[in-house]
Nucleic acid binder design. Structure first.
Lengths: 199, 199
DNA sequence: ACCTGAACACCGTTCAAGT
DNA sequence: ACCTGAACACCGTTCAAGT
């Protein structure tokens, strides 16, 4: 976990884990099947930290939002572990507990069973995708180059011909806006509003 | 591109590309900067195939859905290239053209400028995340083990204690449902309905 | 049961040397 | 300008041999 946080998912190698434990890479195979197995274990660990509020404490929309925020935060806490979670069906006890909680909230919101099931795929997909993107950014710019990159992109977009890309040029400001969690919250609101419309 | 389709993103190595071209890996560096550069070029190539309908031909909701379907299909056409596109700001001419088209549709739908900008992030994020998941599944089960895996998961879920996970157990059927693009289309409908609500 | 050294079959990238 | 061989510093995994 320490290696994951300092070196990211790509920096997590069997060899690095082995030397951190004061042994050789081959010794790890006495305890785990392979690297995927190690990652599964780490994912389970990450899910331990999610804390869910009392389902009676707020309207379902707010509960769903709280859930997505919590999952995103828990993935974000462990640098680019999100990539590993995507496309996986969670089977660890902590992940199952979180999923069951979400299903309960959605059921009492009046969604059909199938809608609840699909929503339980869509919501973690969104949380995972956002956390994945952020993790990528973090590991690509381990430090200070990020402002330079954003400035470079902004400059490039500003230099685009308005006759060919009229809308991009017209909306440069909004496109480049990056205010805390606003982008994430927008997507979250859209999805929750869309779920409400599905009832 | 051929290597990407047959071996996936992880199978795409400098060395493999080099031998496919009848040369050594070092020779590639006379033409491209590094592997990321190669992948950027491939992403640009993949975006060439997207074809967008006339914006007057349908209501905005249908146009947006057509756009997301097209992006997903174009990413899906090239096995797990989607992973590489996530967290990237597209700068290639084909990607820009597609984005500008989408922005035009969203603007005429009556969304605020900021909502249009954020939606232009959310929609490709969804398309990319779905394509990424599918790509992962494809490369993990290069062939036939997939049914066995699904059956295994279903069995595991069925064995879960109902008192601890009442909702998961109650909704086993809907959770395991896998009917073509139904899951993808559900998410798409949710997001588009959510965007409509945002106006 | 657990650990180890050594090896196998790979990686991306660099660099001096060639044409 | 373009290419090359050889090397550097890595990977995940296996396997016979040890304790």
């Amino acid at each position: 976990m320490k290696i994951l946080e300092t070196d990211g998912l790509d920096g997590l190698t069997m060899r690095r884990v082995a030397t951190a434990l004061g042994t050789g890479p081959a010794s790890l195979y006495a305890h785990i099947a392979d690297k995927d197995d190690l990652i599964s274990i780490l994912i389970d660990r990450a899910a331990e930290g999610v804390e869910l509020p009392d389902p009676e404490s707020a309207p379902w929309e707010e509960l769903v939002k709280a859930w997505v925020r919590e999952i995103r935060a828990s993935l974000g806490r462990h640098r680019n572990l999100a990539r590993a979670t995507m496309g996986m069906i969670p089977t660890g006890p902590n992940a199952l507990r979180a999923t069951d909680w979400l299903m309960g909230v959605l059921r009492s919101a009046g969604l059909s069973d199938q809608a609840v099931a699909y929503a339980c795929d869509l919501l973690p997909l969104y949380a995972g995708a956002v956390a994945f993107e952020e993790g990528l950014m973090d590991s690509r710019f381990a430090g200070e180059h990020i402002e330079a990159y954003v400035a470079e992109i902004a400059e490039y977009f500003a230099s685009l011909p308005a006759d060919r890309y009229p809308n991009i040029v017209a909306l440069l400001g909004p496109l480049m806006r990056n205010e805390g969690d606003e982008r994430f919250e927008f997507g979250l609101s859209v999805i929750v509003a869309g779920l409400a419309a599905q009832r």
